[in-house]
Nucleic acid binder design. Structure first.
Lengths: 233, 233
DNA sequence: ACCTGAACACCGTTCAAGT
DNA sequence: ACCTGAACACCGTTCAAGT
């Protein structure tokens, strides 16, 4: 009957946030916050595959199994880490005068926060974002789009489109930067040009300058233009 | 000097496709295709976390370590599986009369193919898609958008926006369906309403009917509207 | 309520050896 | 060229016991 067993049914992703959190700090002062920031640090250093419970515990100066008092499964650590990344996202307390500007800024800020932790895009795209920091950012997006005139299903869809485009773009971008990006790009380009008869349109493009930021900016403008048009009815 | 060591530098994601593939089939008739479809089958059954090399090998009736002749690392298996999913995506041989219709159909088809294998969205979002089947679909998108009038950076950005929005949306959707979705939704809604003072806009929405398909359709239309407007200059 | 310690089952990967 | 077999290092998780 420990807290970690309190969740009903199977462990579902994001479930850390729906369980009651242990409020008091133990004899080592171990809190979710301390655990989260250590996990972030190790993910930054070792990447998603490099993370391991024993190293996290060692850095926190506790026994590996101690962590199981604070989380139910390893994946919970990832949820804590992702929410910590969202906390880095600046959240304006006043809405922007022009809602399009507000959403645009949010999209670029979100991209930067996720890119600062290369593992976070992959996680944000594949796990429900239910932490308090992530929810606060969602609330901001909902509020901005509601002010733009969206309601009901369209409001939910517009908000989803905004976050899914950003997170999807960042995840794709980060997936290239895991290895040696330049070598990878050259290999792909060679491959495309060697098979130009199969991929004529793609072979024409030059990936020489991988201008990720500019490409993302264009992507964002495409969506913003569509949202603006629909908001006008 | 085995083939798996042929790649220069560190193992980068998607690298299976850039290495020369062993052309002939061995005494067990083990090919990349057979391995790929077995991996897909096991992922469908056990999920991403449930996949293990030993089980794959057993099902193929070979020794676990035999797989290392055909791939360099476990992740290569995932790349093979993702490309196999892309192969299920119907690819029209004639372009649509209206390019918007063509892209719209592609987006919905891609969503369906990825949703049919719940693990594939997470993988597609976090690994470069360099397999032949995935590239062929990208080529289709590039060609359609080029016909719409996009060129250079804007063409690349438009294509990226289309695939990233779809993959990002599917990954998010699938992340909810890993566990008991209904229970999860209810818990989240309770949580939002209990904290309605923090999340006023979100608390208002009813997540009763989780109409994923309708929401995705709206998201797609937002992007398509923006693309159409930009294409008109 | 929070942490320790021992122990278990599992799994990706290497490497030398076979045919 | 392709496959086997033994072996290694590692790692998430459990459970009973401590304070």
């Amino acid at each position: 009957m420990s807290p970690k067993k309190a969740a009903t049914g199977p462990v579902l992703p994001g479930a850390v946030w729906l369980r009651k959190r242990p409020p008091r700090r133990g004899q080592h002062g171990l809190t979710r916050e301390r655990i989260a920031s250590e996990v972030v640090a190790q993910l930054d250093r070792a990447g998603l595959d490099g993370l391991n419970l024993r190293a996290v515990a060692a850095a926190l100066d506790v026994h590996p199994t101690t962590l199981y008092w604070h989380v139910a499964v390893r994946d919970d650590l990832l949820d804590l880490a992702v929410d910590a990344v969202f906390a880095e996202l600046p959240l304006p307390d006043r809405p922007a005068e022009d809602w399009v500007d507000g959403i645009r800024t949010f999209m670029h800020d979100l991209r930067m926060a996720l890119l600062a932790h290369s593992w976070s895009g992959a996680l944000a795209s594949s796990r429900p974002l239910l932490g308090p920091e992530a929810l606060a950012r969602s609330e901001f997006v909902y509020a901005a789009l509601a002010r733009a005139g969206f309601t009901g299903d369209e409001l939910a869809a517009a908000a989803a489109a905004v976050t899914n485009l950003v997170i999807g773009s960042v995840a794709a971008e980060a997936s290239w930067q895991d290895g040696d990006e330049l070598t990878a790009r050259r290999a792909v380009q060679e491959h495309l040009q060697a098979n130009a008869h199969i991929y004529p349109a793609m072979a024409e493009l030059s990936f020489e300058t991988s201008a990720w930021a500019a490409q993302f900016a264009h992507s964002a403008e495409f969506l913003l233009a569509g949202l603006a048009e629909k908001a006008r009815h």
